[in-house]
Design a binder for these strands. Structure first.
Length: 364
DNA sequence: AATCTCACCAACCGCCTCTTA
DNA sequence: GTAAGAGGCGGTTGGTGAGAT
């Protein structure tokens, strides 16, 4: 018997959030920052449970969330990461800072799982050609899994280095203080990437960076389609392109002290966002998302972070275990050590099916 | 034009972990 | 050491819109 749900109380509202509720929540978080969710309903007067507030913020209102179609690159990343980590969506989301775990989970369940199955069907046909023995002993299976893991790791390495520009170079830029505040700066080294990033930005929905912005957006939104007021569609996702660009400008202008959260998560476009994992501009140099923090939109100050699995690069940039592991491998860490690490990681999973499949597919 | 089916995704539910008293 | 509660996470559901019949 689990705990009683926190929202079991009478008078707690459920269902889609209204624009008004969004505004209240955003302005509260602008004022107090994310966290202490328990006090949010009482402080704001929202008839929502704290969990619901947190989810609304994390999955929708948090700055820096990219909406819209996943790029091929992101898809690849998810495939690789899912193969490595299993259904740990929060962990996967920490490598795609502009996507929420919920988004990735949804995308996996609706698109990628299907793709995987299709590929799997093809693979089964291949296996029917007796390449795989009828019964694989446990030892054989483990060895095979280890090979799969190794291959998946290599694939991830490749995926991580899609951008021709090395992370170290980008870091050097940072060190030299040549990085602009433009979130697309990292991609701008490569004109195509830059343009892709820009077009990506304009095609994806905008996000709220301040209560004022939202209020202004809602004003226009309400004028255009009053019917939407009661629908489940969020105003933020129904903005016209005109309003979007306007919002973007306002948002860029709102990079003030009060909006440090926005600044810390303000990168856009998948590639640029991904680059940002390894490169730092002036506004992010002292911050780094941890597994759970990134999903929460809460970037812990490095000084405040607990002793963790993270280590520092020579430039003082913390690396997650996975990143460190990848880089270490390139420096010649034994494959056994890597496999041991991953096996330890994988042993925590009880849903190995999908991700062993995915790992197998990476062999193709 | 009406109805049905399917895909998508925001939000909910319940369990687990961590923190605090 | 323990219990209670908050936060976090992954699985699932239900409302909605788009496309097919």
């Amino acid at each position: 018997m689990g705990r009683l749900p926190c929202c079991d109380k009478a008078g707690v509202k459920k269902g889609p959030w209204t624009p008004e509720e969004d505004i209240i929540l955003v302005s509260y978080i602008q004022e107090h920052g994310p966290g202490n969710w328990r006090s949010v309903p009482t402080s704001t007067g929202l008839l929502r449970c704290s969990k619901s507030c947190r989810l609304r913020w994390t999955n929708y209102l948090r700055p820096g969330i990219k909406r819209g179609n996943f790029t091929e690159h992101e898809e690849k990343m998810i495939f690789h990461l899912q193969a490595l980590l299993g259904n740990r969506w929060a962990a996967i989301a920490s490598y795609l800072p502009e996507r929420t775990d919920n988004d990735i989970k949804n995308y996996w369940n609706t698109h990628l799982k299907k793709k995987l199955r299709q590929q799997q069907t093809g693979l089964e046909g291949f296996y029917k050609g007796s390449r795989i023995p009828q019964s694989i002993t446990k030892g054989q299976w483990e060895r095979r899994l280890q090979t799969d893991i190794h291959m998946a790791k290599r694939a991830l390495c490749e995926a991580l280095s899609v951008d021709t520009r090395s992370p170290l170079l980008t870091q050097q830029d940072t060190k030299l203080g040549t990085v602009s505040k433009d979130p697309f700066h990292h991609a701008s080294a490569n004109t195509d990437n830059y343009l892709a990033a820009r077009s990506c930005e304009t095609s994806s929905s905008t996000y709220a960076s301040s209560a004022e912005n939202i209020a202004r957006l809602l004003k226009g939104w309400a004028k255009r389609s009053p019917v939407n007021q009661s629908s489940s569609l969020s105003p933020l996702s129904t903005l016209s392109a005109q309003t979007k660009s306007e919002t973007r400008t306002t948002q860029e202008n709102s990079f003030d002290n009060r909006s440090s959260i926005v600044a810390a998560t303000g990168s856009s476009s998948s590639d640029a966002g991904f680059d940002s994992l390894f490169s730092f501009n002036s506004s992010t140099a002292h911050m780094f998302p941890t597994k759970s923090d990134s999903a929460n939109g809460c970037y812990r100050l490095q000084d405040e972070s607990k002793p963790s699995l993270e280590t520092l690069t020579p430039l003082g940039v913390p690396l997650s275990l996975l990143e460190k592991w990848l880089l270490d491998d390139n420096c010649g860490v034994s494959a056994q050590a890597i496999d041991d690490h991953l096996m330890r990681d994988l042993s925590l999973d009880d849903d190995g099916d999908d991700h062993v499949e995915a790992a197998s597919l990476l062999l193709q």
